[in-house]
C-alpha cells in the first residue's frame, strides 16, 4: 500500500475548478515530483493534501486515514509536514522559535526533540549561526532552509515541498536540491512541487506532469526527462 495516495481529487477556488480529478501515489522512501507550468494546480494539490484546501470530491489517504476528513491542525500529527510556496516562515520570530513551532505538535520527550534540532543544524549549519536572529532578516536561501528545517522538526513521514528553488540563486538551488537528496537518503519520503523541472527530475525517482488541473503523464523521472513532450514544454528544449 502506498504511503500517501491522492484519489480523484477535485478542488475549487470558489466556483473555479483548480483540480479536475488528480490522482497520485507516493511510496515510502521515494522522492516524487509534480511538475507543470504556472497555474496547472501543483500548489493546489499540495495544499489539498496538507488540509489548507478541502476538495469537493476525492480522498487523500495516508495509511488508513482520509486526510480530507481530518482537521487541518491535526494533519501534521499524522506525519505530513508542509514547507509551503513562498516559505512563509514566521518572520517576526527568531530562527530558533520557528524551528520550535515546527515541533509544536510533538509530544515526545525533549531529548528526542534535541536530536532533531541537531539534525537540522547539521543539514543547515547556517541556521545554527543565526538562531537568535529574527527570521525575517534572513536571506532568501536561509529562509528556504528554515522553511524546510521547520517542516523537518515535525519529524514527518512525508515531507511536502513547494517550490524550494523559487527566487534562489543557481548555486543555492543546487545546495537545496542536494539537501533534499540527503534528507531522502536518511529515509524521508518527499513529494516535491517544482517549476524547475530539470532540477526536480534530476533528483526524483518518479514524477507526474500536471496540466490545467489534470495529471497528463506519470513515469519514472528518467523517462520523463527523456519524454519529447516534457522536453519541449518544461525543459525548454526545441
Amino acid at each position: 500500500m502506498p504511503l500517501l495516495e491522492v484519489q480523484q481529487v477535485h478542488t475549487y477556488y470558489g466556483n473555479i475548478q483548480a483540480l479536475k480529478g488528480v490522482s497520485l501515489k507516493v511510496e515510502k522512501g521515494e522522492i516524487v515530483t509534480l511538475i507543470g507550468s504556472n497555474g496547472a494546480g501543483k500548489t493546489t494539490t499540495l495544499r489539498t493534501i496538507a488540509g489548507v484546501l478541502r476538495p469537493r470530491k476525492g480522498t487523500v489517504r495516508m495509511g488508513d486515514r482520509d486526510l480530507t476528513k481530518v482537521p487541518a491542525n491535526e494533519i501534521v500529527r499524522l506525519g505530513v509536514a508542509h514547507s509551503p510556496e513562498g516559505r512563509r516562515i514566521f518572520s517576526r520570530m527568531s530562527v530558533k522559535e520557528n524551528l520550535e513551532m515546527g515541533a509544536y505538535a510533538r509530544t515526545d520527550p525533549p531529548a528526542e526533540l534535541a536530536k532533531d534540532f541537531e539534525r537540522v543544524y547539521e543539514l543547515f549549519p547556517r541556521l545554527k549561526e543565526r538562531l537568535t536572529q529574527r527570521a525575517g532578516t534572513l536571506s532568501g536561501g536561509e529562509q528556504q532552509m528554515l522553511a524546510i528545517g521547520r517542516a523537518l522538526m515535525a519529524r514527518p513521514t512525508v515531507l511536502l515541498l513547494d517550490e524550494p528553488s523559487m527566487g534562489l540563486a543557481p548555486v543555492l538551488v543546487e545546495l537545496v536540491f542536494k539537501t533534499i537528496q540527503d534528507i531522502n537518503a536518511q529515509g524521508m519520503t518527499v513529494l516535491l512541487v517544482e517549476q524547475n523541472a530539470h532540477m526536480a527530475l534530476s533528483i526524483a525517482h518518479r514524477g507526474y506532469v500536471l496540466q490545467t488541473g489534470r495529471i497528463v503523464l506519470s513515469d519514472s523521472a528518467k523517462n520523463l526527462a527523456e519524454n519529447e513532450m516534457v522536453r519541449k514544454a518544461y525543459l525548454g528544449e526545441e
Binding site: 496538507a50 488540509g51 489548507v52 482537521p71 487541518a72 491542525n73 491535526e74 494533519i75 501534521v76 500529527r77 509536514a81 508542509h82 509551503p84 512563509r88 514566521f90 518572520s91 517576526r92 520570530m93 522559535e97 520550535e100 513551532m101 515546527g102 509544536y104 505538535a105 521547520r150 515535525a154
Partner: peptide, 19 residues
C-alpha cells in the same frame, strides 16, 4: 508562541498543528 504564530500567519500556524 502559538499566539504570535497565529498573529503572523494563521494558516501556517495551523499547519504547525496549532488549533
Amino acid at each position: 508562541k502559538a499566539m504570535r504564530a497565529v498573529a503572523q500567519d494563521s494558516e501556517m500556524a495551523q499547519q504547525m498543528g496549532i488549533d
